[in-house]
Design a protein around this nucleic acid. Structure first.
Lengths: 106, 106
DNA sequence: TGGCTATTTGGCATTATAGCCAAATATACG
DNA sequence: CGTATATTTGGCTATAATGCCAAATAGCCA
């Protein structure tokens, strides 16, 4: 990999890395439905609000979500809808692995 | 997130995490074309062969690639083709971010 | 202003990941 | 069997990610 190619895959990996966490994947999935404020997402996730805020920051820096302020609240929404394809592909991968495991018993 | 939901997103995140590395993304991209042995991939990547082998191990454990031995060589191939959607989506995200930056100058 | 709620940031301990070297394993072939 | 090639594994250090607490910031309202 020369520098140019490496930079290309580094940039793409950074975006994927932003989604490579259960909480962030969950959040992205929720935001695909509609915008939510940090407090609502915090309730759904069940972690400390500072943890959720940092996860949102990771998604924002990756360009996956964007914010809109409303008073004291900050609403996040999904910016790139194709993100949800990640979930369905991950699911397909899991099913593929399970299918293979089942074949061992046939 | 209750335990069941958390486990679900954890499993999906594990698959995405396996792709969240420039070298592994590069390898997955190559394997989408055709199967390659470790030595060939090592040349293309340019890292130590043990490093490449471990990256392949990560992809294998995630169920993304599978192996076929031929003599002393081990050929890896992509098992789940939808993986390539990750790349195009990442690209779209990057373009979306660049587009936004350009608008700042208009 | 002062208090209130929502959110972000700094800092820190814990844990996970990356990449190299050395050594082990597997397979072919003389 | 002994050697050569291909690959994997163990181990180690350096670096990054995670998640909480405490503190700072931002915007509303009395």
């Amino acid at each position: 990999m020369n520098k140019k190619v490496k930079a290309k895959y580094q940039a793409r990996a950074n975006i994927i890395k932003a989604l490579a966490h259960p909480t962030r994947l969950f959040i992205a999935n929720k935001l695909a439905e509609k915008a939510f404020c940090v407090c609502e997402l915090t309730k759904m996730v069940g972690d400390d609000i500072t943890t959720v805020s940092k996860h949102l920051s990771v998604l924002k820096n990756a360009g996956i979500v964007a914010v809109e302020k409303k008073g004291t609240q900050v609403f996040y929404h999904l910016k790139v809808p194709c993100i949800m394809g990640f979930l369905s592909c991950a699911e397909e991968t899991i099913k593929s692995a399970l299918k293979e495991q089942n074949q061992l018993f046939n």
